[in-house]
């Protein structure tokens, strides 16, 4: 199909041509028969003026409407959108009349991003926890080792002090 803007002009031109063809000079002269008999040339000129003015007025109106609604570029944009959908055969989605239902699809990409962000955060937190857990286990191990070392030192000192006491006791005797 030709571009919509051209089609609009063509359709209006066809309308004008057919309207003028319907309102032919013969028809015009027959309606003003007496006047046409009196002044045939004037009748012709008046008819030509009539046609010229009607065509000009209608073309101006169309131009005005196109300018007002920016119809030229808008129709070109629609041509482009239709062209993009070339090859589609199935009827496309249309608003259902239930805004909440219709808004769902608009928000799906946003919800998918949110889910992806949460998955990333969850994975990140899990990895962090794994690292922390290892650090905690290693820390517990280090603390256990420190406690053992302290226990050993304490045992050694206690053994020492026990020996001392025994020695003193034996000496005391």
């Amino acid at each position: 199909t030709p571009p919509r803007a051209q089609l609009l002009d063509a359709v209006v031109e066809t309308f004008l041509q057919r309207l003028v063809a319907a309102g032919s000079f013969r028809r015009f002269a027959s309606c003003y028969r007496r006047f046409h008999q009196l002044q045939p040339e004037v009748t012709r000129r008046i008819y030509d003026q009539f046609v010229a003015q009607l065509q000009a007025a209608i073309r101006d109106e169309i131009s005005e409407i196109k300018a007002e609604g920016n119809l030229g570029p808008v129709l070109d944009a629609l041509d482009a959108i239709v062209e993009e959908a070339r090859g589609q055969t199935e009827p496309a989605w249309r608003p259902s009349g239930d805004p909440e239902a219709d808004t769902g699809s608009i928000l799906v990409p946003c919800a998918q991003q949110r889910r992806a962000a949460l998955l990333r955060a969850l994975r990140g937190q899990r990895d962090e926890n794994r690292r922390l857990a290892q650090a905690v286990l290693a820390g517990r191990e280090r603390i256990r080792a420190l406690q053992e070392r302290i226990q050993a030192r304490r045992d050694a000192w206690q053994a020492l002090s026990q020996d001392q006491r025994e020695l003193l006791t034996s000496l005391g005797g």
């Binding site: 608009i106 799906v108 990409p109």
Partner: peptide, 9 residues
């Protein structure tokens, strides 16, 4: 988006 996510709701 309705074409990408037909079962939107």
């Amino acid at each position: 988006s309705h074409a990408r996510h037909p079962g939107g709701r």
